[in-house]
Design a binder for these strands. Structure first.
Lengths: 200, 200
DNA sequence: GGTTTTGCAATACGATCGCATCGTAACAGG
DNA sequence: CCTGTTACGATGCGATCGTATTGCAAAACC
């Protein structure tokens, strides 16, 4: 029971986190292909090539699995942002608002899953909280980047920057949707966001 | 079989359209409360206070019911727009882009149902086509209103107006979402849209 | 008033669902 | 080798699903 070694302490040693990642990825694929309505333990298990029992073992209930898929999605986006740590504020700002525009198939999957969760968040408290926190974080980060870009110090409040951040993020959401349903080309959407960023 | 009279030609006369309206309204309520996942013929029947058989009689399948709910939603929004026929172009433009911001409970229901359909449109061709056509219509109308507002004639193309229309509509979608999940007050969203309209 | 057609309620059916349970293979520590 | 614990695969259960089917009441038409 007591663990003297650092990483491995269990019998039948497996990489717990890796197993969870595989299952969550299969969940995303199912959501992207069939929508959140199409999510069932059996479908996800088939997509991942594992048994239903495995999913139950790692996530317990369907509810928990779906929620884990949501937090994993948010974490993944945040990880992508952290990689831009040494870029200029203007470029980082552009990354935050245009990162979700689907440029390839992988991006399409991610953003269609994201929209599925957005719709779910309307009637699902836990999902709503996860997305709300992510959104607050993105908004604050945008405000910081806007202020850094114009060379302002860390002030208490900045209504103008907040307003611009909100407009930028809302615009990004709306444009993302257009691209997703095929009404708009990714290039056009990014160009519009770039113009908006440079107007600040 | 042959119908000599104009309106009524059937035995057991009922208002077919009215019955469909009642069922579709119950469908919207179910979607708003439980999301599209929660839609089942039994739930909708219970919400409408009718039997499942009635729904089958009027819509045939669940698929057809859901799609009818989508077109009815679009038609309803279009009807609201037509009522502004004698307003100034600037006010009509503001109506188009801010009409979906939920101001009361009725508005919340409508827009949460609308977002449910948006998510569904990602994986559902028929819904996507209905929404795409509505969006194209809104975009064209915005272009017309923008050009009318600045006193321009009916010209062939106007890239600047198209760009502004797209930005306005995308911004409206994004702001609507924020209001829906409670991140933003309706007043603030409308104020931002108004500022954007007046900047044109 | 009988016939025909429509409007629906009731129900039955097979598929699928989430989840609980059970059994067991694999491995760490003694 | 033995024991305990973990990691599952397999299976079963009750609920719920969409839809097909059946049957009957009410109204229009002859």
């Amino acid at each position: 029971m007591r663990s003297y070694c650092y990483a491995v302490r269990m019998p039948r040693v497996v990489d717990h986190a890796e197993r969870r990642r595989q299952i969550v990825f299969a969940l995303w694929l199912v959501i992207a292909e069939q929508g959140i309505e199409g999510v069932s333990l059996r479908h996800v298990a088939a997509e991942a090539g594992v048994s239903m029992g495995r999913i139950q073992h790692y996530f317990g209930t369907k509810e928990a699995l779906v929620l884990a898929g949501c937090t994993a999605l948010v974490d993944s986006a945040y990880g992508g942002y952290l990689e831009t740590a040494d870029a200029a504020p203007r470029d980082r700002l552009l990354h935050v608002v245009s990162q979700q525009i689907p440029q390839d198939d992988g991006g399409r999957i991610g953003v269609s899953v994201w929209y599925a969760y957005v719709a779910k968040s309307i009637n699902h408290t836990a999902v709503r909280q996860v997305l709300a926190e992510a959104r607050r974080g993105a908004e604050e980060e945008c405000v910081r980047l806007i202020r850094a870009g114009r060379g302002a110090g860390a002030d208490a409040e900045d209504p103008a920057a907040l307003d611009q951040a909100r407009r930028l993020l809302a615009l990004a959401d709306g444009l993302t949707l257009r691209v997703l349903v095929g009404d708009l080309e990714p290039d056009e959407a990014v160009a519009m966001l770039e113009a908006e960023v440079d107007r600040i």
